[in-house]
Design a protein around this nucleic acid. Structure first.
Lengths: 203, 203, 203, 203
DNA sequence: ATGTAAGCGAGACGGTACGTCACGTCTTCAC
DNA sequence: GTGAAGACGTGACGTACCGTCTCGCTTACAT
């Protein structure tokens, strides 16, 4: 069973990974600055000091480069610290989401990404996997802890709760383009905590 | 100094309004289908059966045509009926918002619009005025009625309340690209009503 | 009878002929300098101060531009003067051919053209029509006059005679790349005249 | 003095000559088929089943490979047989020249070569040495024999004579792209023999 | 009623970017 | 150290639109 790995007969040239990284990085800058439609492969190549072929050897089109670059905007989402209370945890989740949406580069790209995703199934999936999932997982932890503490009933509506952790901030910052102040965050924390717990003492 | 206005002595020749409308309509179709970046002036002119000059005589650039067309996506938001209860009114607002976001053409364009607005102050303002304001005004009516009924305190946090009327639906439909079912709407209505009223009986 | 001519609805934009001429002229320069293979559309456009589209609107490819340009290298072959003798006429024909082949631009292009013609039927025909025919017609005049004078028999081998008017000069100048001196021309005139008249006093 | 070749003491690793030959052979095919300008190093390497390095280790550029390959189209010109008469010898020379120019591959390449030589001194020299010289040498033999036989004067114009052995055939076949029939060859033999001998009985 | 300025469809214009291909150089690995 | 593989920067290919422009024709006021 010596074979298998012996497919490639000889010294294959390999795409230089540091070049790939540099291109991705510059692509993200261009995307943030110009948006998808006005980003240009030629500009990326020029700024990266590489030929266009280095780009097209890695990605078959501008679209695929952009999607790949965006999907690498990994969400280095810090762990959700246990603050001891639902209210504290909600506030922490909101702050984490805010610091992510507030990043000047990521924020700009994300809205482009969302727009593009409507016409690109692949991108939509990549977006959900790379961006949505980790963030939602973190929200789940908060809900689980609150249930364990007895602050929330086990049957809390998770889908809506998780939507509410992200939606208002995205809407305020990304759609209405208004700043999110700490004070806004306080009020939002209050309302969301109330919303989640409201049902608890219900009828 | 008799001149000035007396330059144009005769034959008016005025931009034909039905042409303007037809171009706008086709622009919206192209925008919905291709997105802002891939929409092309040549295609719009071709589909409208007009010359490119008819476009550029009306709008100085592709961007301005697109922005203008989008801003005409008027929000034929039906009046908010008084359902007799906060809960009913919230449900009605959500349904109106949903029917607006769910429009296949408007939905697609709106996300493009949001992305573009980050890099275009004019568009951002047009977006806020044409889309945000009417919708928010309608939300205000609901809050006012609830206060009048005594269902909400006069000092209810209007900014957050109005954000919450739109944010979750936009997030769910436009960002997460998931369908909004009537059942989801029920649950969302419950949670939002609870959130708004939660403070009422507070300490 | 208002219709009929009313097919073309309005003022069609037309390729500007002076631009076409300028492009052709610069193409010929590039062809002479670089040869077909190294001539570049971008360089032609740049030197002509036009966009590439101006080229591609007129010719579907580099090859067709080059062929068209070359076929316009019209042969402004002066009339063959009647020098009063076959020898004088032969000398005049050789001189005309020489002045044509010796043109620095035409000479370089002609060999490219000949090479290209082997793989391009269209070019081969254009070459024969634009270049070969007029030159041969002029040779025929010389033969006709010599027959009229009684210097040549009516049955002189025209095909070979006409080949011999051009072949040695093309070979010497174009293939062997040697200069053609007046003295060489004298000797060639002698030999060709002798060759043509040799048969006259036959058996 | 066995050394010299014995420089490389160990793991010899010498350019494999059979590879060189194979590459040259394929280069000639590509040249004949596509012409110099459209021949591609990548295609040669691909068809030869070798890497591009095998090419560039042997020749510094496409041009030099092409020139080298063409110069190896050695002229396997059979010895000029002594037919016993000038006329017979001229006919033999013409036939040899024809069989050389008529070779489908060589004929195509030769015209490319001639065109390229105008812009490449090295190629021009290689062409003269590899192609012109042997052919001319053979022509000289014919002239020498005719002088020895007394058919030509010692002072016959060799330069013109040698030009006339090749020029008409190249012109007819290579430039005018017409077939050379045996009958044409007969007539050409007659005229050339007459041209050479015409001066003999002079004054 | 007519003159005339503007609107109109068409499309050429100089550009920029697309995605492809080949150049000649270089590096890597296998033999 | 030859050789196959192929990545690298470069630059031309031919295409598609951009926004500008000019061209004749049509239309609808203002006289």
């Amino acid at each position: 069973m010596d074979s298998g790995a012996r497919r490639k007969p000889s010294g294959a040239a390999v795409l230089r990974p540091e070049l790939t990284d540099a291109i991705v990085e510059i692509t993200l800058d261009e995307l943030a600055e110009k948006g998808f439609g006005r980003m240009s492969m030629e500009a990326v190549a020029r700024r990266a000091g590489v030929g266009k072929s280095a780009l097209y050897r890695r990605w078959p089109s501008k679209q695929e480069l952009a999607v790949d670059a965006m999907s690498r905007l990994s969400v280095p989402l810090a762990e959700a610290p246990d603050t001891g209370s639902l209210r504290g945890d909600v506030r922490a989740v909101l702050e984490a989401t805010l610091s992510w949406l507030d990043d000047p580069r990521l924020g700009r790209i994300l809205t482009d990404l969302v727009a593009e995703a409507r016409r690109n199934e692949t991108l939509a999936r990549a977006l959900a996997a790379a961006v949505g999932e980790p963030r939602r997982a973190r929200g789940e932890v908060v809900l689980d802890r609150a249930i364990a503490r007895g602050e929330l009933p086990a049957g809390v509506d998770r889908e809506i709760a998780l939507d509410l952790f992200a939606a208002p901030l995205f809407w305020h910052l990304g759609v209405r383009l208004l700043p999110v102040t700490p004070e806004y965050l306080d009020r939002l924390t209050d309302v969301l905590t109330a919303a989640l717990t409201a049902g608890r003492t219900g009828p």
